[in-house]
Nucleic acid binder design. Structure first.
Lengths: 334, 334
DNA sequence: ATGAAAGCGCTAACAC
DNA sequence: GTGTTAGCGCTTTCAT
């Protein structure tokens, strides 16, 4: 069996209290005993049990991350950056994919509470606001990322999705496009992007003709199908703004099916700047989210909350950036 | 504070032992008290603490997953499938990215052992065999996925990488290619693919001319650079087998830089069948790994081991499949 | 500077 | 059927 604090104490000829103090660097102990105990611990390969100390009310050094889908490159990257910062700060990550299901959200939250995680990071797509409120009332440390909850006083790191949509549409408008379609999804972030898109059209005096398509799922296939609808319509758009890179890839496919060349026959802009964007052909113009920075920042926020080092809550809004590549060009008549 | 077993016992007017028995459905209790206790538990929203029961030697219902990089689509997908099956069986997943570093491997293993995870799933890229041996000696439940450790008696789920390499090379050979280069990486899975490639060449009587390039990292950029070397060489290959889809995407880029059309001037085949493969242009011929099946199977194996339901260890080898798309065509002279 | 002892919330013998 | 009790491995007062 693994050695326990009692084994160490016995071997060192001291009490378990002394060993505990040495481990935690608390209380007063003579240099001599400290050194001896430390040696014995090394010798026995003693590893204190987190479970036992957690039971005494200390941290589990584990944080729960709830995201819609780990297999989605955006969330995978986000999770990775949270993992990195977490590990640096001594925390492990339990990851749960919710598939945008409120049922799973509350199931996982409850489960992780039973496991005494130190806190939660809730990522974009977390829909159950009521649950968030309950967590806050219980004073469970909590931070939100890639999502905003305007009505709640909660630490948040997000990207300005409105600006992102605005940038995307403005880019196309500046290139001379007037028939600009948008493919979006009915989730919070996409709704903001849509607002930004509308605002840009409005400012440019382009009539807003409901060239909107709402997909059920953020997938290449959905993007393809929806783009197909646009491309087969009477007045087909000269540019399409897809609210995610994978949707945009779907647009690429649809364009090929219709014998349309990107970017000459159709400009396409995506969102996220996942690796796909740079790897596609032609390479994709897109709106980059500072994913890594978001992950790092939200982890710092949560850990500070866990440690009680913070007084005031904050909202950090990072700005997206236009990455102009090859899939968008000036409009050149029909 | 959250109610404890004592609170419930008090309110129900029974002993904590009774409550415990009701919770765990053990021992003998009258239907009447059982019902009453259950009601009180619901009423108080009592959630038993995993930490406390773990301290008594029971499961933590947490499994540790060690993978090279969560942000890599292959591993993200694998992790997601493990997560799914794990959740169905009542387990949570702590994910640690090792970046192929033995140092991180042992750091995370130790940390998770302190946290009393029930078992480990070690994915491809786990290099520290010695560490695996130690875990086995300690009887820590353990399973390996997407990787083989031929010398170890350990539950394993992997894909036949040799066959994968063989399939890829054979496909190109059957298309009439004779100058077939390979871009690979010095990790276990890729070494096997290389062996398969060599075997196919051997059988076809094609002299093996060391048209091999070993990259340091599985990235688009590395693929691009390495392919560049081949394409600028005197006798440039007519086909390239890249040992991963991202590497293959790099080859796509390089080809464009050299003014070569895929597939007419150069056939390219990848490995993994990540979403990139279907989404690329032209769409990529590749070798598909049954990622999801691997994740499910390895989780089942581990959980059985944790529960002590299994006698014998096993190795499950799933077979890869050629997905023929557009990036490979028959060789048609220069 | 060190140790004895009282738990943290729960499980599992064992007694009644 | 139900309750008493002794821990699991550790932290933390409070004596000494």
């Amino acid at each position: 069996m693994k050695p326990t604090i009692t084994d160490v104490a016995k071997k060192a000829g001291v009490s378990i209290a002394t060993v505990s103090k040495v481990m935690n660097n608390t209380g007063k102990i003579s240099e001599a005993t400290k050194k001896r105990v430390l040696e014995i611990m090394k010798e026995m390969e003693f590893q204190p049990s987190f479970v036992a100390s957690a039971l005494k009310g200390k941290s589990t050094y584990t944080i729960g991350l709830l995201i819609p889908d780990l297999a989605n490159p955006f969330f995978a990257e986000l999770a990775r950056s949270i993992e990195d910062r977490g590990h640096n700060l001594g925390y492990n990550l339990v990851i749960c994919s919710t598939d945008y299901s409120m049922e799973k959200e509350s199931k996982y939250i409850n489960l992780l509470k039973q496991k005494s995680v130190d806190g939660f990071i809730l990522a974009s797509g977390f829909e159950n606001i009521q649950l968030v409120k309950e967590l806050m009332e219980e004073k469970t440390p909590l931070a939100i990322v890639a999502r905003e909850m305007p009505a709640l006083e909660v630490d948040t790191v997000s990207v300005d999705n409105f600006l992102g949509g605005y940038l995307a549409a403005s880019h196309l408008i500046n290139l001379g496009h007037k028939e600009i379609a948008i493919i979006t999804r009915d989730v919070w972030s996409n709704r903001e992007r849509l607002r930004g898109y509308r605002q840009a059209l409005l400012e440019a005096g382009i009539p807003f003709e409901e060239k909107i398509d709402v997909v059920e799922e953020t997938s290449v296939e959905c993007g393809r199908k929806m783009a197909g609808k646009f491309l087969s319509s009477a007045r087909r758009p000269t540019a399409i703004f897809a609210c995610s890179d994978s949707l945009a890839i779907g647009v690429f496919h649809a364009a090929r099916e219709f014998g349309l060349k990107i970017p000459n026959d159709l400009s396409v802009i995506g969102f996220d700047d996942t690796p796909w964007a740079g790897a596609s052909f032609p390479s994709m113009t897109t709106i980059a989210q500072p994913i890594r920075e978001m992950g790092l920042a939200v982890t710092d926020l949560l850990v500070k909350a866990i440690k009680g080092e913070k007084e005031t809550k904050q909202r950090l809004i990072l700005l997206p950036k236009l990455i102009a590549r090859e899939s968008t060009v000036p409009y050149s008549g029909r």
